[in-house]
Amino acid sequence: MGAREEMQSMLRMMMMIRNFEETADRLALRGKLSGGIHNSSGQEAVAVGVMSALAPDDVIATTHRSHHHTLAKNFSAREVMAELMTKVTGVSKGRGASMHLGDVARGHFGGNGIVAAGMGIGMGAALGIKMAGDKKVSVGFVGDGGMNTGRTWEAINMAAIWKLPLIVVVDNNQYAVETFINRVTAGGDLAKRASGFGLPASTIDGQNVIEVRDAVAAAREYALAGNGPTFINMLTYRYYGHNTGEKGQYRTLEEIEDWRTHRDPIEQFAARLFKEGLLDQATYDEMKVSVEAEIQDAVEFSENSPHPDPSEVMLNIDSGKLRG
């Protein structure tokens, strides 16, 4: 892929994720999904930047807010939307809904509802990779809310002493429900905290997709060379409530507006591509149209898919290897 195509496909992926999330949130409010969602709008550059630096075989393990990671790892809008509606055509066959997207065969070790658990699973995957001698890496996503959780640092310590090919990505949208991260960070600096474990640790602009991609690419090279884990704290922002319908009083409308108008990852990247001559208005407009069509198709596909048959409820709950 040439630079132009690569940049445009990164932009389009971010646009697709935004449209997907806003559409899914509206459907959830209308009661058309199986439960609410954790909308990732505003955090697209983290997901797309990370996946742009990974090979298809590399592993990710993620959190309760994982649609953006999943779509960026090339899961289709159809299979993700169908899962949100718990339809058999969903990525988890309709058993998982929003928080349990994943497919081990495609290097996605799942989202899950336990804060910071995905990072530990990512560490386990990294151990598996090292034991198997594979040339790949594992990314463990964790929210800022997982930065004061014990298991996070247990996993980082273990990855560091065993030099595991783990990249810890803090999808730091600065809030854990209503708790502002700066109010609860002793020492004030997450990267500094991580560097105490003797690994490269940095804080970067998570709204800049290229900065994200380059930081992860460097961490990947470092891990593949056998040097062990890297910790990257990516500063980003979520535009909507913690979950569908949540409208807290814990942050100002001005703060949200400021991030939306001055630091939006999609608008910033599009502006950059225009300036560098890598994007023209007609192509940009076409992208918007094709993204809208893709998401509408995903919704229709999902609505027209069946729910799992209740008689199959015992299927897909274990590997089958332990049964006679």
Binding site: L29, R30, G36, G245
Partner: peptide, 11 residues
Amino acid sequence: VFIPALGMAME
């Protein structure tokens, strides 16, 4: 303007 779904159990 509609009645929002605000929880799994809300009908």
